[in-house]
Design a protein around this nucleic acid. Sequence first.
DNA 1: AAACAATAAAGAAATTTTTCTTTATTGAAA
DNA 2: TTTCAATAAAGAAAAATTTCTTTATTGTTT
Lengths: 216, 216
Amino acid sequence: MVQSSRKSSAVPEPTIRRMPSYLSYVKVLKKKGQQFVSSTQIANYMNIDSTQVTKDLSYTSIVGKTRVGYEVEALVEVLSNFLGFTVMDDAFLIGAGSLGSALLHDNGLSQFGLNIVAAFDVDPSTIGKNVNGVEVYHIDQFRDLAQQMNVIMGILTVPAENAQTVADLMVAWGIKAIWNFTPARIKVPDEIIVQNTTIYSNLAVIFNKLHADRKE
Amino acid sequence: MVQSSRKSSAVPEPTIRRMPSYLSYVKVLKKKGQQFVSSTQIANYMNIDSTQVTKDLSYTSIVGKTRVGYEVEALVEVLSNFLGFTVMDDAFLIGAGSLGSALLHDNGLSQFGLNIVAAFDVDPSTIGKNVNGVEVYHIDQFRDLAQQMNVIMGILTVPAENAQTVADLMVAWGIKAIWNFTPARIKVPDEIIVQNTTIYSNLAVIFNKLHADRKE
DNA sequence: AAACAATAAAGAAATTTTTCTTTATTGAAA
DNA sequence: TTTCAATAAAGAAAAATTTCTTTATTGTTT
């Protein structure tokens, strides 16, 4: 079976995944007043090879200076832009349970270009509440609000068994991307972007390493 | 700069990362009473190539039957064991803020072999509370409890600026693996396993795809 | 009973990603 | 001023991962 593969971009996904960490780090340096940072310094922080950093940064417009490194301020600027963190995108969050409200509490998201404008649930005890400045509505109000609000992303934090149902609603209501925090794999039309984020994969990786250690 | 690379295992990490999803899915099938599952079916669910599934499963001990597939019950068993989800490991969680308590509320973790036995914080308003059955202690009590409890993993959900300090404590107190949910990159001795889990990487990937679409 | 179709498995090929090597540049030290 | 060392950048090589191809098997249909 062959999978349809939209050549997502010229930039390797591993590179994209490392960049937010570079950015976090360089922001700290900026705060400290450091003016230049070398690939070696970033690599040391990240525990990766320095040529990896150079190569990753070569996908952006920044150019480093031999023997000096990259200008910190410019690098923050360039990375933020490159990653799309400077233009704010609006999102809805559906499922205001424990994970959902943790995300609502995470003010870091807005720093990375994501603005959660409203949350939805079906649980009467959460509806009407205001979580860290975000109003929780009944899910039936989703459609009306979505049209008013020009929201392109839906954050899916409902129980796994409801994931597909809610995803279908999201698609019907015009969402472009779904950030799926449930372990369920949802089916959506090709043009909809889905990003699955499940922490259990990470747990598996840890256990695998722990186990390997035990065997050695 | 060359990085020390402990050849973590013979099994590719991407494979390890996909396996928990296979497991989740096959568990659902088991509940439904389905007796066999083909690589094609799993691949279809996961939206990946079916040979990928076959190859991934070949790292385990299971053997499929031509024209039939894999026995569901056996597959659940084999995958759970392979991933180390059947032996419960004990963990401490440090930082009982919004993300921390979301993790405490996630009963799925115990299904995947992780048992959070205690939580720690410095905030007087959370100390002494019981979150979903887990007691929250002052961080000073960490050492005593760690020795009593044979805990091998520390879950790090403190603010980024405290990550290194707390990681140092964890190491000093004999933890073997750190699951780092902060954006900070921590420095620990080589033998300590660190797994960084930051959701912002996923956000970057989504934005990258959204952007690519806009450009097309 | 024979032909067919769906599948697992193993290995080869292709692709992607990382690491290595080389070169040129430039600030700092001698 | 000259030499040295640290660095970025580009390209080559290596390694890892995914996809493709082939083969053998076996349930189902004719």
